[in-house]
Design a protein around this nucleic acid. Sequence first.
DNA 1: CAGTGGTCTAGACCACACT
DNA 2: GTGTGGTCTAGACCACTGC
Lengths: 261, 261
Amino acid sequence: MNNISPLADSSPTDADASLLTPAFSPLYQQIKGLILKSLQSGEWKPGESIPSEMDLAARYRVSQGTVRKAIDELAADHLLVRRQGKGTFVATHAEQHVQYRFLKLVPDRGNLDTEGPAQREIVDCKRLRASADIARALALRTGDAVLQVRRVLSFAGKPTILEDLWLPGGPFKGLTAERLADYHGPMYALFETEFGVRMVRADEKIRAVLPDEAQSQLLQVSAGTPLLSVERVAYTYNDTPMELRRGFYRTENHHYHNVLN
Amino acid sequence: MNNISPLADSSPTDADASLLTPAFSPLYQQIKGLILKSLQSGEWKPGESIPSEMDLAARYRVSQGTVRKAIDELAADHLLVRRQGKGTFVATHAEQHVQYRFLKLVPDRGNLDTEGPAQREIVDCKRLRASADIARALALRTGDAVLQVRRVLSFAGKPTILEDLWLPGGPFKGLTAERLADYHGPMYALFETEFGVRMVRADEKIRAVLPDEAQSQLLQVSAGTPLLSVERVAYTYNDTPMELRRGFYRTENHHYHNVLN
DNA sequence: CAGTGGTCTAGACCACACT
DNA sequence: GTGTGGTCTAGACCACTGC
């Protein structure tokens, strides 16, 4: 009901954005939205620090506590990272200790670091037109340009993960097999630095399947070896889907680890 | 360094619990611990309301804001549920809209409600002595008494989930196949009301496997049909393991759904 | 209406990092 | 020391629930 339009952000007279909507929105939620907008617009880039809480409070004409609550939620969503004494930073996939944030496959004993860095091999990388289901997953239209990538990850020399990726052609214009092969580090980090696409959230659908001919060869398993099928849709800001990924995991010595709360 | 011993809780003179530990613990964390203690002790039971924030603030001799922050975290962990205008309640598994909080298997189309209530069949239920790995998972000693349960869940008439459970014999003394079969509602709700055991968190390890003879018969699939193997350890308060569960899911028409943040 | 949780503020002080 | 995030307080007011 109040919604004292926290303007400041350069907009002259924001007026009441919500007039007929009885949807009461707390101030800190509105601030959260404004911060989000700055993140999307690239005003603050991954890895950089954002203004201090006091500065933001002044900018939005609210108290520090209100900014704080907004940042708290963004930090809980892993969009921001707070570091006491240093500042608040835009989260990034290019950090050692969150390397594999979205990869939940771990060795039965030890952890991924135990096995040393994964070897990656780009099997295939080409542009093509989206099929109906690829298009639907990526919120494109059938026939739109997409990039298709197939790669194999090996741990301790053993091929363990086979992944097929589909990326929308527009945002990822210029991505080639070479770029991918030359880059050392998380793929999502490359997406951030080279294409300005930051993955924020993902949905996974997991099944048990048998490999087809090509898959069993690439993963060096027999046709009867069950694999974990992991279909992921990854989203940027605004719930925009930006990647479809179908992974096939060998689980003789690894497992998909999940924590339920 | 301060730790102004929020006594009140009936303890006469708590003195400084932390003296040599440089581990600075914020007041609200200490309050969180005290509330947790009351939850464990059963002072407030699942489904009941706990005292109002003001009451707790008075009890612990801190401000409402401090109690609030403690409750915020407990609510984020799903140990408490806040309801504006009504109060704060101890979370419970016996609620319609969080029925299947720990079951992540969903139909490819629709949701679990679409298929109507699951049919359950208790295949087996007996007491035995813990093997080495069962004991390890439940933090028992090899040979300790455990309860073993095997059951099948069917959706829309199709057997879909086969589960083997192991429960520590002590806390679950008196649990029988009949009790299980007669109870309609989530199993974890029965554990709460009948045995005072509230599951708070769980770890799952997921693999793709092939069924053995017995499994393929119970699930009515051929020996070559890959299944999702879901091994779960469920914990009560204090990270105490209270259940080991090995589930085998058919995933022709269902998938394990996971959200990555 | 009274009681509950939810929001917002202003100010004081603490812990941590850098310089 | 200065600046950052982190904690704690006290008080005002709002939104929701149920009597």
